[in-house]
């Protein structure tokens, strides 16, 4: 069984934010009204963290793109009362929008603040509704959502591979963010496959995971020379 994982090379990432935009477009993530945005209700499945260190003028800035870490031991799914967030055998942590009762317990339990909530019914101008990605179902008010590792793409890739009766190649299943990153800083693949790029990178001495001591076992691995 593959175990899908993402590696983000912070030494290459410039913090350009394209992953955030690509993700929003690919996954039909709603754009909240400006007033809502002001109230901290924007929805980014891929968010951006900024860290400033040092004393002026020797300031170091690190920008860290932050999707859902698809923890192998996810605290978020443990608390869900209705099985609306789950981990599948391939390690993807998913959300079932139609079952979620909107208690937001999973959000409170996620140590990485990876989830967002539909405070209102998502709205689009009629024109924009035309160009929704049909592979990704739209959400409704009152449910939680988050980065899915673009699971719908895996579905497509599997069909292709099945049709041709072959295993999925390394790099064939690529989430939108990884695909568009101008710095090629995002890698994606199967950790169980020792030949895969992510497997190799995950063993790099630069590799680290956020809050590793929590035992959540994130499957998003960062690479960085500075700690």
């Amino acid at each position: 069984m593959p175990k899908w994982a993402m590696v983000i090379d912070l030494d290459k990432c410039t913090g350009c934010g394209d992953c955030m935009a690509a993700c929003k477009v690919e996954n039909n993530v709603a754009i909240v009204s400006p007033e809502q945005a002001e109230e901290n209700r924007v929805m980014f499945w891929m968010d951006m963290m900024t860290i400033y260190e040092g004393e002026y003028p020797n300031i170091k800035v690190t920008r860290i793109p932050k999707p859902c870490y698809h923890c192998d031991n996810p605290p978020c799914i443990k608390v869900c009362p209705v099985h609306a967030t789950y981990i599948n055998p391939e390690g993807l942590v998913g959300q079932i929008y139609h079952r979620c009762i909107g208690c937001r317990y999973c959000m409170a339990a996620c140590p990485y603040t990876a989830k967002v909530f539909n405070w209102y019914e998502p709205e689009w101008a009629d024109e924009f509704k035309t160009c929704m990605n049909p592979d990704v179902s739209l959400r409704m008010k009152g449910v939680v959502e988050k980065c899915s590792f673009c699971a719908h793409r895996l579905q497509h890739v599997k069909e292709d591979a099945d049709a041709e009766d072959r295993p999925i190649n390394d790099g064939e299943y690529m989430p939108a963010c990884a695909e568009s990153c101008p710095a090629d800083a995002i890698f994606f693949g199967d950790l169980e496959n020792k030949e895969s790029k992510v497997y190799k990178l995950s063993r790099s001495p630069r590799a680290f995971k956020e809050l590793e001591d929590l035992g959540t076992e994130p499957k998003v691995i960062y690479l960085s020379k500075r700690e």
Binding site: D18, C131, A183
Partner: peptide, 15 residues
């Protein structure tokens, strides 16, 4: 194959 955020909002120009 790379893009910037603004490029990704191109459909919002069209529609």
């Amino acid at each position: 194959g790379g893009m910037c955020p603004s490029g990704h909002s191109a459909l919002e120009v069209l529609f």
